[in-house]
Design a binder for these strands. Structure first.
Lengths: 142, 142
DNA sequence: ATTTAAATTAGAATAATTCTAATCTAGTAA
DNA sequence: TTACTAGATTAGAATTATTCTAATTTAAAT
């Protein structure tokens, strides 16, 4: 976190209170928040904060590789502040997202005819499941 | 395709010319079209067709498992009329999407602590790459 | 204290998707 | 064939996430 702030300054970016609040909120956060989640949280301390600031900051953090967009929910983008490559599992009932820290890269070999057409640069797995809470809810209904 | 039309009727859905046109357009289509792509195509023959019809039909086909939404591009949803489970590779430069018919399911074992929290129901891999066309473009620039 | 490039802001603009309510029609049955 | 009706279509409005804009403010360097 401190390192991040340092990196921030080194690269000539200004460290504003709003950005600091966003950085703090994201630091170690595993809730995979949306821009709106972040906005609402920051608004508590900085009532005049705007979406533009949230999106700007997220965009910058993405460029720096500190935050990744999660492509798993079509409605809204989710953001993941863990820069370590990993995968995700999403509850198909409540959309809760979990992290999957497992390296499958050895197994994910592409067929040759694909590698002729695309130079691979990465991969990401979306697992789908039903979380505990929703399993219980479903049982209750039956 | 014929089977699909039969299935359609059997289940009490009406087969309208617009829907038939959409079905024909999707049949065997590997271009992973967006709703807008489909709309523009159908509009050629049915100039009064509306987005509502396109989205309605896609929704119905999804429920029947004949079409799947591809969660790989945040801007727009893409649709895949191939009901056989498979994965995708997307060009990070031009967004072109390719199909990856390879069964990785054996390798995609989830860590135990995840399986305690989620009952898995499926998975989908997004591969990222640079397509031939874009590789050439990039070289040209250098 | 001054300067200035960058950041913030409110609100408008954009764009994908969903909704609505009026109209129409495929398929059925008389 | 005709009439019926549940379901489909339509134009356009509404919604929602995200991006843009232009005026104002500010962090950080001088």
């Amino acid at each position: 976190m401190k390192e991040l702030i340092e990196k921030y300054k080194e690269r000539g970016f200004k460290l504003t209170p709003q950005r600091l609040a966003i950085l703090k909120f994201l630091d170690g956060n595993t809730s995979h928040p949306t821009a709106d989640d972040i906005y609402r949280q920051i608004k508590k301390d900085y009532p005049t904060v705007s979406f533009a600031t949230v999106y700007n900051t997220l965009q910058m953090l993405q460029k720096k590789g500190e935050v990744a967009e999660i492509t798993i929910d079509h409605q809204k983008k989710h953001y993941d502040p863990n820069p370590k490559p990993h995968h995700h599992i999403i509850c198909i009932s409540c959309n809760k997202i979990g992290d999957v820290f497992e390296d499958y890269s050895e197994a994910l070999r592409l067929p040759y005819h694909i590698e002729e057409e695309f130079k691979p640069v990465g991969s990401h797995i979306n697992f789908y499941g039903i979380c505990r809470g929703c399993q219980k809810k479903h049982k209750r209904r039956n």
